[in-house]
Design a protein around this nucleic acid. Structure first.
Lengths: 110, 110
DNA sequence: GAATTATGTTGCAAACATACGACATATTTT
DNA sequence: AAAATATGTCGTATGTTTGCAACATAATTC
């Protein structure tokens, strides 16, 4: 009996599931929205915008960073975080491509 | 110290996080795709299409059902599952609305 | 009405996610 | 070089998800 057997699924579904997992916490959605709103790439006192401890925010940033959603540039003691435009646009395409396949206008008409 | 404090976030982020959570497993993405492909609403031997045990598939169906993605109509012993067009289209709008806000073409140009 | 078929539910073990205090590191200021 | 500032990592407690066998339920067939 093995657990979490994601390897048995198509790559399309595995990749998209990973993206969805990253987006499945309100804190991470809020962080992405915040970074998109402040045009300038501002430092990690994102913690002040998010009602969680700095440690927890830092961990959410790590998840976003490892998935490629954001990038951080060191500037002295500070780190300027910002969205990764290329990655984000790629993810958006993947998501939209999948959602276009989930078209159910011709199904289940009662 | 409390855990999983999702209540501190905006409703937009909480709702979208829930949808993303449902979509964060390849089995559920595969099930939705399968239901979208077979135009006719076919019964729950979706298990044969998914390389997991019937029990596990049944639980993934439950997650999709409780979230509103799919609906099942009893037909004798069988249950005809199909996408819920209204709910799915609503979810798609929520997702697209959020993604449109995550626009980073003017940020982080090095 | 007993056997078969289709399906959901329960209980459990393993894995993973979440939250945060305490500690570590590295830069800047005094 | 000590203090202050910005940040990451570790350890730990708790909660959630995943996968499946075993059991339960309900309709159909024999």
């Amino acid at each position: 009996m093995t657990y979490h057997r994601t390897e048995v699924f198509d790559e399309q579904f595995r990749d998209l599931a990973k993206i969805a997992r990253v987006l499945s916490h309100p804190a991470r959605l809020a962080i992405l929205k915040y970074l998109a709103d402040v045009k300038a790439c501002i430092s990690g006192d994102i913690s002040n915008e998010i009602p969680l401890s700095r440690t927890t925010v830092s961990q959410h940033l790590q998840v976003l960073r490892e998935a490629g959603f954001i990038q951080g540039q060191i500037d002295g003691v500070k780190i300027n975080y910002c969205l990764n435009p290329v990655a984000v646009n790629g993810f958006k395409l993947l998501i939209e491509n999948y959602l276009n396949q989930i078209n159910c206008d011709n199904c289940c008409k009662e």
